[in-house]
Simulated scan of single mutants.
Amino acid sequence: MLEKHLYDSWKSRMELYMLNRPHGRMILPSIEKGPLVWPSIAVDGATRLKEYIELTPIEAIQAYCDIKAINIILQGLPTEIYALDIHNRVAKDLLRR
Rank of each mutant, 00 (worst) to 15 (best):
L55N: 00
D8Q: 14
I58G: 02
L16C: 07
A91I: 01
K50T: 01
E80N: 14
K11M: 08
T47G: 06
T47E: 13
P35N: 15
P35D: 14
K33G: 08
D93K: 15
Y17C: 08
K33C: 01
G34P: 07
I58Y: 08
T79W: 13
I31F: 04
K68Y: 09
Y7K: 04
I53P: 07
L6D: 14
D66W: 02
T79A: 13
D66M: 06
G24P: 04
P35Y: 10
L2Q: 07
L94C: 07
Y64L: 02
E3Q: 12
W38Y: 15
K50Q: 06
N20R: 10
G34T: 04
L16P: 04
W10D: 03
L16R: 09
H87D: 14
E54K: 08
D85V: 14
A91W: 02
P35S: 11
E32S: 12
A63M: 05
E80I: 10
I67A: 15
E80M: 08
M26V: 08
L84S: 11
P78A: 05
L19K: 10
S9I: 14
D66C: 06
M26Q: 06
E15S: 11
M14R: 00
H23G: 03
Y82C: 06
E15A: 08
L94N: 00
M18T: 02
L6T: 12
M26C: 10
N88Y: 15
W38A: 10
E59W: 06
D8I: 09
E15M: 12
A63W: 04
I81N: 07
Y64N: 06
I81G: 02
D8M: 08
G34R: 05
I31N: 04
M26L: 10
G45S: 00
N88C: 15
V37W: 07
L49Y: 15
D8V: 12
D44R: 03
K68V: 11
Y82E: 09
K4F: 06
I67R: 15
P22N: 03
L84P: 02
P39D: 11
